[in-house]
Nucleic acid binder design. Sequence first.
DNA 1: ACGGTGACTGGGAGCGCTCCCAATCCGGTG
DNA 2: CACCGGATTGGGAGCGCTCCCAGTCACCGT
Lengths: 345, 345
Amino acid sequence: MSRVAKNPASRGSARPTLEAVAARAGVGRGTVSRVVNGSEGVSAKARTAVQKAIAELGYVPNRAARTLVTSRTDSVALVIPEAETRLVAEPYFSDTIRGVTAGLADTDMQLLLILVRTAKERERLAAYLSAQRVDGVLLVSVHRDDPLPNLLETIDMPAVLGGRRSDREPLSYVHADNESGARAAVEHLLDRGRRAIATITGPLDMEAARARLDGHRKALGAEPPDASLVAQADFTEEGGIRAMRALLERRPDVDAVFAASDVMAAGAMQVLREAGRRVPEDVAVVGFDDSIVARHTDPPMTSVRQPIEEMGRTMTRMLLDEIANPGLPHRHVALATELVVRESS
Amino acid sequence: MSRVAKNPASRGSARPTLEAVAARAGVGRGTVSRVVNGSEGVSAKARTAVQKAIAELGYVPNRAARTLVTSRTDSVALVIPEAETRLVAEPYFSDTIRGVTAGLADTDMQLLLILVRTAKERERLAAYLSAQRVDGVLLVSVHRDDPLPNLLETIDMPAVLGGRRSDREPLSYVHADNESGARAAVEHLLDRGRRAIATITGPLDMEAARARLDGHRKALGAEPPDASLVAQADFTEEGGIRAMRALLERRPDVDAVFAASDVMAAGAMQVLREAGRRVPEDVAVVGFDDSIVARHTDPPMTSVRQPIEEMGRTMTRMLLDEIANPGLPHRHVALATELVVRESS
DNA sequence: ACGGTGACTGGGAGCGCTCCCAATCCGGTG
DNA sequence: CACCGGATTGGGAGCGCTCCCAGTCACCGT
């Protein structure tokens, strides 16, 4: 049989194969494979010969071939609900990606980015993941009723969540200590002598939003606070605006607001200004995220910083761990937040 | 997490193969393959039988096997220099990704996200791309001396740039019409009766920055403007601050500033406030990007909007085109910008 | 000297898919 | 009724790699 190299995409110099390296080094395929994969049981002599051949030929393993036999893909997916990329403070997005990338840096894993926008895409994603096209999944911004985590568990796919669905989340996750952060924010307002401290919440089907609300409540005392001081919103500026208007109407005496996101806090500040209330003299404002928005409002906003990039890095490390050790029990990690005080409080 | 799969090849429920589908449908592998890939020359009868079998078995093609033989990977890489994710206005990042994802939406291509941070990683990326692990590359935020585009051309890898290296860029690219945008901004300032219109530039090794500077010059008249009205910076807030200080010192009479990015404009506004100049009464300010920052400065900032998400979408479509038709000549697309007038001017 | 031992090594057997070609089928022709 | 050509079909031959096992070989103990 002639070995007619009829490569369909025959551009560029044909890449050398394992076989070519073996021939050049005067050894068998098995030995080259062992060297490439760092297995032991290869004589020093053979190893150097192979390494030399690899260098000379510029050999790079064909990932598809490897995947075909090992059924490892050497890639992980980062799944982000697209809506969140609009609502949530912008840096959340880039910081997460940066953290994940950093966590993957000296692996040779690839990062697949998947934005899910519609319910239909969600289903496609499910099929996609079931097809085992990645070794693991990072899932951020999960809502309470998100079906994806359960799916992942069902198909036995390693996964780590950024944030949790509830405080009984079984899957592995990394999250910021939202409750403590919120509590610190409200206590800071109390320290400043504020007495009527309202809060603007995020969507309560997200645990992060609930936890921040809890922090507000706990800082104010054990018993549930006056409901008139709580306005529900959705993390958007528009929502923050509406919530602040409602609060002013219900509680003209309000002298401080803790918003569960910077963007909502910015909206609140607008409303306060229009209402003729000075910030911070009449009403103090504290946000959450410490995003770029917080630094540019007028006055600059006090906010609770969460270590998003580090969350991404940690999630990634945990995922790689779970991929490498399939039996591993799920782990839960909380990272500390930090109150950044500026002039709005 | 109950059963620890110790058998390497034992995946949850063994995924059905092409062969299984063929058996079930009572046809040969070739026929199933033809149906799956939409080739013609399949009788209606065979086709429906195959489709039925696929549905019943829940068959999903194994991508690795396909890649191995076709040497297509069905994935494209989006390469982003990591430094840019910090400097450039944040939404740039997420908008681009959103656009690219949208462009890929009804393909079954996957998106690989690659952040390049160090020179070493840059080299690894070169090796990676040379290994033909993706079908095409999207490259954003290219600097004038970026070696990557040439590499891509050398290895004959389909690529589309977001922005260009110079106005003689040979590779395909999509960019915003920076010069017109800048010109519109400066003309707007002239309309407002401003006479000493300074500009704060981005790093001039980026064509976008140069083009914005050109726009400033051309709006002011054919001849090169007074150099004292031009301050070079780097797209960062810090840079904008330094530049504005320098401008105030050199030209106390300055009555307007056009900054090549919102973040720099925000820095400039800070400096102006500290210097006791009112915006816009004493000095009008216009930014570029129309990012979230522009909406939250005090006063809200006039800015030049660029359709970033659309750029991402367009780039992606062009790339898919180039992948599908290898002979295609390179194309250059400029998208219009739009001046968004707010209270800072 | 000889079997035993452990360290290495080569290469067959696929992984699941696409390509391609020979084989088959069928209606229409002469 | 034999023959022809186009439409359809089945399945062999790999793609490049890892796994695994049967050797091979130098060396040791008795």
